[in-house]
Amino acid sequence: MAEETITLEVTRYRPREDREPRAQAFTVPYRKDWVVLDALNHIKDRVDGTLTYRWSCRMGVCGSCGMMVNGVPKLTCAAFLRDYLPGPIRVEPLAYFPVIRDLVVDIEDFMGKLRRVMPWIIRRTEQPLTAGEYRQTPAQLEAYKQFSMCINCMLCYAACPVYGLSPLFIGPAAIALGYRYNLDSRDEGYHLRQPILAEAVGVWQCTFVGECSAVCPKGVDPAAAIQRSKVAGAKDWFLSILLPRGGRS
């Protein structure tokens, strides 16, 4: 019996050689336990060693293998070939990001935005190590926990039409992570972080399409983080108008 196969149409682009990205079809063995990443690895190992893409953990933790699979942002390590039968499967680099080569995109823009929202615990004064850890109740942990599940895979950016239209938009993941630290009971950096989330290219750009939350492979709800940051931002804004000291203690 002939071996079952499936066809992948993979975007290829060589910098300085190709003017435009083009699709190249590869026919690979079909296995029901294979994911798109397995098929790409098969192509790289057996068919064309020049195929370039990012991957690492193969188990939905590292966030490096995000690509467009049939037009939808997916972690390719979690996109089973069996869900795309009979094929062909289109595999493209993440939408809205500049392509470096083949399926590898330039993530500098996102990394810069991530740094801007200061996704770390800020203290007015750091307590000495001898004072022990900053303690937290289970309820305080629960308040931000889902937003801390973000793995920076950037699928939400590739799903966000607003990011596609206005690249200055800070975007779903960075806002969700900034919001995560605003919610953290150990953090004292709201006054530094919130003005960045609430600037014109921050939460106000969002038109509540909601696709960011729909495509998140970790069940994070960036759309909720954005809407709640809007409420906080609007409250700060009205207080700053109404109260002499901007309503801040």
């Binding site: 600037e199 014109a200 609007a234 804004w237 700053s240």
Partner: peptide, 17 residues
């Protein structure tokens, strides 16, 4: 306060209510 730089919160507040 830098949140005052933009009028977006005002319009969004009206949008919201």
């Amino acid at each position: 306060m830098s949140t005052r730089k933009t009028s977006e919160p005002f319009w969004w507040g009206l949008f919201s209510v």
